[in-house]
Design a protein around this nucleic acid. Sequence first.
DNA 1: CTAACATCAAAACGAACGTTTGAACTACAT
DNA 2: ATGTAGTTCAAACGTTCGTTTTGATGTTAG
Lengths: 244, 244
Amino acid sequence: MSDQKTTSDTRERILDVAERLFMDNGYEATSMRAITSAAEVNLAAVNYHFGSKEALLCEVFRRRLTWLNDQRLQALDKLEAQAAGAPIKPSQILEAFFGTLLRMGEDPSLGGMTFLRLLGRTLTEPAEFIRTFFAGEYAQVIDRYKRALFRALPDVPKAEIVWRLHFMLGAMSYAIAGTDVLQVVTGCEVGDLAGEASCDDPDTVLARRLAERLMPFLLGGLRAPLPQFHEEANKQQEPSSKTV
Amino acid sequence: MSDQKTTSDTRERILDVAERLFMDNGYEATSMRAITSAAEVNLAAVNYHFGSKEALLCEVFRRRLTWLNDQRLQALDKLEAQAAGAPIKPSQILEAFFGTLLRMGEDPSLGGMTFLRLLGRTLTEPAEFIRTFFAGEYAQVIDRYKRALFRALPDVPKAEIVWRLHFMLGAMSYAIAGTDVLQVVTGCEVGDLAGEASCDDPDTVLARRLAERLMPFLLGGLRAPLPQFHEEANKQQEPSSKTV
DNA sequence: CTAACATCAAAACGAACGTTTGAACTACAT
DNA sequence: ATGTAGTTCAAACGTTCGTTTTGATGTTAG
C-alpha cells in the first residue's frame, strides 16, 4: 500500500537507463522508445510511473540532487559549528561545496561520473522547465554558500564574489561535463591517467584526478586580485594556509 | 561586380535567425519551420542554400569562428614578434585568447552576445557532428596557444597546464552561455550593471563587465599553486605516493 | 533572348515523436 | 474463489519532424 516493492524494479531501471542516455545524447535527442527499449520495459511505463518525459528528467536529477545538496548543507553546518563564530577559510567552503559533488563521481552507487557528466551538460540547457527545476533544487544551498563566502571574504565586494561563484560553477560544470568538444585540449589526459592506478575503474580515477586539479584552480580564481578599481583589497588574501 | 548581391540576403537572414533561435531553444528544439517562418523565407530555402539542418548549424558557427580564430592567431603572432624570443606573460596570452572572444560580445556586427551565448551553450552539446566540427575549427588555434602557455610557464608540468586550459575554457564557456540556471547566483548582477553606463545597449555593457571580471579570475586560476599530491588530511585511501 | 540561378507556394513524403487507450496480468486481503 | 488495486502490455493516436518535389515567377549575366 504505502511502498510497493514491485514498483521499484521498473522505476529504478528506467531511471538508470535514462540517466545514461540523457548523458550520452542530450535530453531532446533521447526518445522514449530508446529509453524503454534499453531498459527492457514497455513504452508506456515512463508515462505510467513518471507522467511525462519532462517529469522523468526531473526525477533523474531529484533522486541524486536532494541527497547531494543535503550533504552540502550538512558540511557547511559542520564547518560553521567548528569555527564557532570565527571566519571560515574559503578553501574549506569550496571543499564543502565542490568536493562533495566531485566525490559523487567516485561512487557508482551515487551515479558516478555518468551523473556528473549529465549534470554538467544539463546545467546549460535552455529549456524553461529545466531552468526552473534547477533553480528550485539549488536555491537554498546556493544562498547559504553565498552568504558563507561573503563572511569569509569581508573585504571583497559582494558583487565580485557572486561573479566568481558563477565562474567557479562554470569551470566545474564544464569540467565534469567532459564533452571534450576540443579533444586537442584533453589529448594527453586519458593516456596520462591510464598509466597509474589501474586498480579502479577509469571513471573513478578520473573523478579523483579531476578533484585534485580543479580545487586549486577554483581557489586561485576565487582569490585572484580584484580588477583595477580596487587595488588595496589584495592584502585580504594572505597565504593563511597550505591547504591548496 | 561581385556575386555577393546575387547571394542576396536570404542566406544571411536565415543565418541570423538561426543563430538567435538556436541560442534561445537549442539545436534539437529548433525546427526548420520555426527558422524559415521567422526569417520569412520558404521552408525549402534552408535545404537549398545549406543542404541540411546540421550544415546550417555548422555554417552559423563557421562565419564567425574562422574570423575569430584568425584574429586569435594574429594576436599571438604579434605577441611573439614583440617578445622577440623572450617569454610572453601568461596574462598577455589569456588576453589574446579570451579577450579577442569577449570583445565580439560588444560588437553586434560580429554576432554580439547572441553568438557568444550560442557558442557557450553549444560547446557542451554531445551530438557527434558538432563535436567533430568544433574539433576541426579549433585544432590549430588551441595547439598554438597550448604551446605558448608551455613556453610561458616552463616550471609547470604540461599536463597541469592542459588541465587548467580546460578549466579556463569551461569558466568562459559557462559565463558567456549565461543560462542562469541558478538565478540565485546572478541575482544582483543585472541590476548592478544597469546602474552605470546606460548609454549602450545592455548586452554590450554586459560583455564589457564580463571581460573585466573573467580575465582576473582566469589568470588567478591559471597561476594557482600546484596541487600537493600527499596533502590528503581528511581522506586517506591512497597510500601509494608513486604519482609523478 | 537565352540560360542559369534564386525564390516562392503548396503539397506530400516516410519516419519518428510523446502520449493514450483498454485489455490482460499479478498480488493479496477477504 | 473473488474483488480490487496496481502493474504491464500491444497497439494505436494525432502531431511534428527534416526533407523532397513540382511548377511557376522573378532576377541576372552573357
